[in-house]
Design a protein around this nucleic acid. Structure first.
Lengths: 247, 247
DNA sequence: CATCTCACTTGATCTGGGTCAAGGATTTTT
DNA sequence: AAAAATCCTTGACCCAGATCAAGTGAGATG
């Protein structure tokens, strides 16, 4: 149950996540400096990557697999505060410790940079700091969108919101535009969905069954989802602001 | 009901919010450049400062007064996603439009910088970009802490959480350390609290009454709050992580 | 001084989602 | 192939918080 630390380190331009990673706009000499501090790290499903409060000596991006950011109260109530899908960034440059538990939900491969040298590089390279700010603003928007979901939506709307976010992210990763019907696999257990949505796993299960009965989604097995009509799903989510992805 | 635009523009070093403002670590020539693009703007209680989606041509900080960031669904359900107290920063450098409605809850004075030149200054001054990143990370932490409140806390815990956050902020502004008992004025109506907490105003009212009956807080009028024991309040909030302010 | 309005309180009732409990379907272990 | 462990579903019941409704109290307005 320990992390396999692999030092594959292909050249940064081969990095499978370069389209969103900080290195996307780097010059050759910056690439070389990034190369020196870069390493890959893989974790098994269920492993905790970082514990809240632990010192975090790296930043990085998810290459493949899924992880979650969660907060837990003393009595065990837990709330997921972030979902890390491939290309998402993890880490808080300038901060010592981790603020949340980071848990691998599936087997996961991360592309990491040692934190200290990364910060040095960042302070010397304006566009990296810029890119970080942009990504942090994106995360802030996502967190605030989720506050509306948690605070004001019904259980059914919450499920529909989650499905439509996952579908959207999945489509943008596979470049699968607005093709209908939309097909994807749920990367989360019912319990993890419940933790994201502020519900119980029973309610999640019931609402998924209800959406299925009403023909909003179709299920094969427990995880494989087909959405015959994304517009319908987003209506169910109470969401007109579709972000233009499926316009 | 239009905004009074005053161009008081005292020198930046006189800025009442310089301790948290972006200019805190600026050199003299940067201060002068900031001075050129700086202006003050005041709004009356109830005024909407920016509408979600509107083009936003400034960034800035709250000097005095309170504003809120809110999101609204088509059917009128609203969720507050941020509370802007004095010294808080507003604006999304690098983004065109506003993502949320910004509403003045009390009369408010803002210290603004024109956006385009501010962005230029930012791209030429690493430590400003740095400071912005830090502030955005703070906001992200606050948003995620609030996700736990919205998703997993009971009505009573939500109220206690809000009171303890306001008390904390108030104390750090007035430099009023850990002095017990803690006294402050609620800057929000019951309805605004409800919008922040994902509750109805009736529930907010009932829970405040309950906390009062149980001696957790004491009320004079409807807004003036005395907290005889901050530790007790934070227990009620289900919150051990007190941020060390009242350790 | 009477009336309005706005912010709040309190009561009565209803209901969405939580809780508790009993399975079912797959996969993993032995 | 039996046993155990996961993950999921469904039913029955309950309760925290929503909804509906009727006030109260303190400023503002005429």
């Amino acid at each position: 149950m320990t992390a396999t630390i692999q030092t594959i380190s292909p050249s940064c331009s081969d990095c499978p996540i370069r389209h969103r990673a900080v290195c996307a706009r780097c010059e050759m000499d910056e690439l070389e400096r990034l190369e020196e501090i870069k390493y890959y790290r893989s974790f098994e499903a269920g492993q905790t990557i970082i514990w809240s409060g632990d010192k975090m000596d790296f930043v990085g991006s998810v290459v493949s697999g899924i992880a979650t950011l969660t907060q837990t109260m003393e009595d065990g109530r837990t709330q997921m505060v972030g979902l890390l899908l491939p290309s998402d960034f993890v880490g808080r440059p300038g901060r010592e410790g981790a603020a949340y538990d980071v848990v691998a939900t599936t087997d996961i491969l991360m592309c990491c940079f040692r934190k200290k040298p990364f910060e040095k590089l960042m302070s010397e390279t304006p566009h990296i700091a810029h890119r970080l700010l942009e990504m942090t603003l994106d995360e802030l928007d996502a967190a605030r969108e989720w506050m509306l979901v948690l605070g004001r939506k019904t259980a059914r709307e919450k499920i529909a919101s989650l499905l439509s976010i996952i579908a959207r992210r999945d489509a943008s990763l596979t470049g699968d535009g607005g093709v209908r019907p939309m097909v994807f696999d749920l990367p989360l257990t019912r319990e993890a969905m419940a933790d994201y949505l502020g519900l119980t796993l029973e309610t999640v299960s019931r609402q998924i069954s209800a959406l299925k009965k009403d023909g909003v989604i179709h299920l094969e097995g427990k995880r494989h989802v087909t959405v015959p009509d994304m517009g319908r799903l987003m209506e169910e989510a109470g969401d007109d602001s579709d972000g233009g992805v499926f316009a």
